[in-house]
Amino acid sequence: MSNKYFLGCVIPARFPFIEASARKMFDRLGIQISDIDGASCCPDPTGLEALDHDAWLVLGTRNISLYEQDGSNIISMCNGCTETLKWVQYELNNNESKKREINEILKKNGKEYKGTAQIKHFAQVLYDHLDLIKEKVVKPMEGIRVAVHYGCHYMRPSSIIQWDDPFEPHTLDEIVNALGAESVDYDLKVECCGNPVGKADEKLSNAMLKDKLESISQTNAHCVMVVCPACYQQYDFGQNAINKEYGTNFNYPVFYLTELIALAMGFDFKELGLRFHRMKVKPFLNQAGLISQE
């Protein structure tokens, strides 16, 4: 079975530099992941599903059927997309009449859901290749302390996601440690970043992020690492908003896991498009010796 990306909306259309780091990193690892044509929004488990469950279900099923028809596995770049696709699969595989109903709708467009596709978060693929990652590290991240933010839908609800532990996850810490860096513990590690709340109450969303940042600031972490574009946006855009609102001084560089690995593999600032980050990452990367001095 071949592997194909499910990129979602936020990464390719808002943070393409994350996609660039992922493609470079997987190529360097020799793990082949190609593209599929015509996928739609997953759709957003914190957005469209709240508007209309059936609309969410039908588009999610259509997306899965594209991969089934192609005979490929789904490698998702985002926690939210992973949650939607796994949840749709769970719902249809456990509800025969709903599955028939949705298939009846899809049939007219020549599509059918069978339930055969394997759905994986990209970090799961990486975790399965820890030794390979270690082999490809040319700039070990010794002395760098990383505050890992898992993001809720990476592991919850556990009955649907069936990956890692809902309250004591460890896979991302192990990947970070494989780069030579140190993943630090902090009190609010498995808590929500607050992003989904922002659609209804931005102030509350920021207050939740502030709690997370305060918890991180009680450690000696240099940077924050995420595996979800919604969490990425919350941390990278949110720090300035919080500093303005609360008079704080948060200034953490925020990295996607793929970016950290690509940096450890020796990819440079420019080719990774790191200048597009809101929170400037260059001073930190220069100091850490991870990019060539410019």
């Binding site: 919850r156 809902p166 929500c192 992003n195 989904p196 709340v197």
Partner: peptide, 14 residues
């Protein structure tokens, strides 16, 4: 109670 404030963190479900 503003149901839209649910962050969907899924902790309650766990």
């Amino acid at each position: 109670i503003n149901i839209w404030l649910c962050s969907t963190c899924q902790k309650c479900v766990e």
